[in-house]
Amino acid sequence: MIVMTDQLLGQWNYYLVIILMMIGFYGVIARGNMVKKIVGLNIFQTSVFMLYISMGKVAEGSAPILTGDPTTVYSNPLPHVLILTAIVVGVSTTAVGYALIIRIQESFGTIEDDDIIAQLDDEEETA
């Protein structure tokens, strides 16, 4: 019993990651509104950032700045560096996504998936 609780509670960060991931993924898939899709995508990516960041944390470890004391335990900086890159990528993706949404709004007058598809179908019929 204790082992199980330990397993369940000791891995709380993973549960959080999974919950976030699913929320974000649901947003991406289920929402027709493009802004909401992007929001979902961001949540989805954030969950991955958290996965990486929590993995780099070493219990009792301090920030990975050299102190000169050989006994100091440091957290692993590499995942954080990686995720910094991933965050930048995420921001860029979001920016491109929003730029596209603006252009879509300008040319279709809507940012709903269904409406755009309906408009395009109309176009096909008249063409």
């Binding site: 993924f25 989805f44 993706t93 996504g97 596209l100 879509i104």
Partner: peptide
């Protein structure tokens, strides 16, 4: 139609990369 196409490409591409 390139715009929604690019948007969907972006969403799915990002999901794949993630």
């Amino acid at each position: 139609r390139a715009l929604p196409a690019a948007f969907n490409y972006l969403i799915l591409g990002t999901v794949g990369a993630t």
